[in-house]
């Protein structure tokens, strides 16, 4: 290998993909319509594939996924948020996939160590973003009930969006420019969906930090307990 991979960045991006894939996997057998079972699983599989490549850049994928403690995970708090109702899942998808698409497009255009991975992933992520946008518009501009649910979901997840624009060691991306592009895109989708951009702050009032610093939210501990339990019950076993 000619360029060394910045481990912090590989973990940050890899954990985002791993954790969101896990959350989407929880939908299996519970989606609102059969066609959506297939769509959500497709997205989850894309993300899991990305996670495996990224984690393998930083070490052994299974050791990293199954044997790290909560504080060692570097994913955004946004992606670990529980699925909630379908509107929450779609809001989470919209916020994250827009960010991921903008970010990967930048990485793919550069010549850094993530360029090859980003070049492949950016196509997958474009589809995830499209899926989220399509649904946001339908739920926002659907029925009164769906409009209200979608607006509430956007508001609930808004506080986790600021973290996406923090600098990550090893990722050469200008955070404020990314934020501006993201706001423009998300704002446009919400407008088309007859929804309003939430007004509150984009991050919680806790200076200790957030997911990128290894500080997570309460639901994440339970998610990891479930995800890691079997693997940890059989130390050294192969599967």
């Amino acid at each position: 290998m000619t360029t060394t991979v910045p481990t912090t960045a590989a973990l940050a991006l890899g954990d985002d993909a791993l954790v969101l894939s896990h959350r989407l996997g929880e939908w299996a057998g519970r989606a609102p319509v059969l066609e959506e079972e297939v769509a959500l699983a497709n997205i989850a599989l894309d993300l899991l594939g990305q996670a495996r490549v990224l984690l393998s850049l930083a070490g052994d994928e299974d050791e990293l996924a199954y044997l790290r403690e909560e504080r060692a995970f570097r994913n955004l708090q946004l992606v670990e948020q529980p699925n909630g109702d379908f509107a929450h899942t779609i809001a989470r998808q919209l916020f994250f996939s827009t960010y991921q698409h903008l970010l990967y497009a930048r990485l793919a255009a550069g010549d850094g160590p993530f360029a090859p991975l980003a070049a492949k992933a950016v196509k997958e992520v474009a589809y995830h973003r499209d899926h989220a946008e399509q649904w946001t518009v339908r739920l926002g501009d659907g029925t009164e009930v769906s409009h209200e649910r979608m607006q509430r979901a956007c508001a609930a997840l808004w506080r986790y969006t600021g973290e996406m624009f923090q600098p990550v060691e090893g990722l050469d991306v200008e955070g404020e420019k990314l934020r501006a592009d993201w706001l423009e895109s998300v704002g446009d989708v919400l407008r088309r969906a007859t929804l309003t951009l939430p007004e509150g702050p984009q991050s919680g009032a806790w200076t200790a930090g957030a997911g990128r610093q290894g500080l997570h939210t309460e639901p994440f501990g339970r998610m990891l307990a479930e995800m890691q339990h079997l693997h940890r019950s059989h130390p050294g076993a192969t599967w």
């Binding site: 059969l34 699983a41 599989l45 899991l48 995800m227 079997l230 076993a237």
Partner: peptide, 28 residues
Amino acid sequence: ANWITRAPSLRRKAILMAKVQDEAGHGL
């Protein structure tokens, strides 16, 4: 699907997700 969230390796997890997805497809 009961085991997707507990699959003991990422490879197995991907396989299981793809399989459960196929079942939805077959239903369709």
